[in-house]
Design a protein around this nucleic acid. Structure first.
Lengths: 233, 233
DNA sequence: GTCGACATGATTGCTAACAATCGTGTGGAC
DNA sequence: GTCCACACGATTGTTAGCAATCATGTCGAC
């Protein structure tokens, strides 16, 4: 069955998986390119150039752009084209405040639903974090940080909050990257992370929410500090 | 100046403001149509039909659909078309939980920023609400409810949270409408509203957040109750 | 020398037609 | 009578090209 036409795939070169649509692939490619800084904030995204870059037709490039507008990564001005969205410090603070309450909600729910296996996972990440800080492996610590937040969300299983948090996180990569470079940050955040882990493992929803909010709240403070120091280029 | 071409607008009939693009107008029209229930949840949105209904080309209809996907009002399955998104009770609860923490954040910030004039506005709405409940004008009370939440958001001036809350509200119109019909609801929510107003007027951020969360939390409970009672058709 | 009108090139907005895909109903074999 | 294969109609996905708009650079008047 499914006598898929044989000799028609000569067009594209990197068309290994014929499953996902070109538009989806283009969207993902472009998103990653923006997130890893290959396009800087404010930079114009000319459709014709994207076609080459992503290896898709203009239609799919446009579709990808519109998708990323919905994710808050791109802005489109009518008749003027698309730019990588420039997130000001004030906006970054707002976004982080929203993340604070959302991740607080998620942490509370994680505390209510955590299973013994998941508790063990949390404990493990906590130990790895402590070791990473002691060994001054900050890059590794940053990865673990992401793993922790991700695990908490998985435990909570709150689809709606999860999706929003992920979207917001995308809008902040640039700022958060700068933040992780601040000296002394890990030393501050490690005990906060440990408090979150302990609360969730103990099944204490209120404490888990408070711990998570304290943690992200300190990120907001650090961000405001960056602002005073000079902000972004 | 602006010698806009004269005899070209013969196509559309209701094309009074030539300012906004057709796609934007189509999006707004379609959103309103969905929100006021002219398209039921789960109903198919066939592109060709939308073209007629909205008086735009298929391209613009498509664009409008994709925009509403981003707003969570529409779902598109590849090669199968677009439906009005069906929000289950579980999802509605999740969405309301997220609204709870977001509106809590906004209420706290409103308490920090409220001006005397805005405090007076709050007071006025509070009195109108009480009168509406006493007079059993529930429709009016429902409008005031919306006005209150809207005013709180305006006072807070938190663009990011504001946008998200508005988006989430759109996904719930159907459920919230059912909720407002529940007998006894106003009697429960009136004191909650008054507590929110008092806290913001007093500039007590913590209390404002707690009051708002309590309020919306009771909505979650009522929703879960609806579920048990039979849910939606 | 400076300012403004105008022409030109680049870029996006949009249209219409074509291709691919899906759901459905029909006909035939067992 | 039931099941499967097939073909058809309906609907969406995609493409290429045209039209509209904006940015830019040039020229001339003052």
């Amino acid at each position: 069955m499914s006598p898929a036409s044989p000799a028609l795939e000569v067009r594209g070169l990197s068309k290994a998986p014929p499953s996902a649509s070109a538009a989806v692939q283009a969207r993902d490619k472009l998103r990653e390119a923006i997130l890893r800084g290959e396009y800087l904030p404010g930079e114009r995204l000319v459709e014709a150039q994207l076609c080459e870059r992503l290896g898709v037709s203009r239609f799919n490039a446009r579709t990808a752009l519109q998708d990323l507008v919905a994710e808050g990564l791109v802005e489109i001005q009518r008749n003027k084209g698309a730019h990588v969205r420039k997130v000001s410090i004030d906006e970054a603070v707002e976004i982080t405040e929203v993340r604070m309450v959302l991740e607080g909600l998620v942490a509370a729910r994680a505390a209510e639903r955590v299973t013994p296996e998941q508790a063990a996972e949390l404990e493990e990440i906590g130990q790895l974090m402590r070791r990473a800080v002691e060994a001054e492996e900050f890059r590794h610590y940053s990865d673990l940080n992401q793993r922790l937040h991700s695990l908490v969300r998985r435990i909570a299983g709150h689809t709606t909050a999860d999706r929003l948090i992920e979207t917001l996180r995308g809008q902040l990569v640039r700022h958060q990257y700068m933040l992780s470079l601040l000296p002394g940050r890990p030393a501050v955040s490690l005990p906060q992370h440990e408090r979150i882990i302990a609360a969730i493992r103990a099944g204490d929803a209120k404490e888990a929410e408070a711990a998570m909010r304290d943690h992200i709240s300190s990120v907001v403070v650090a961000m405001r500090g960056m602002d005073v120091l000079g902000g972004l280029p």
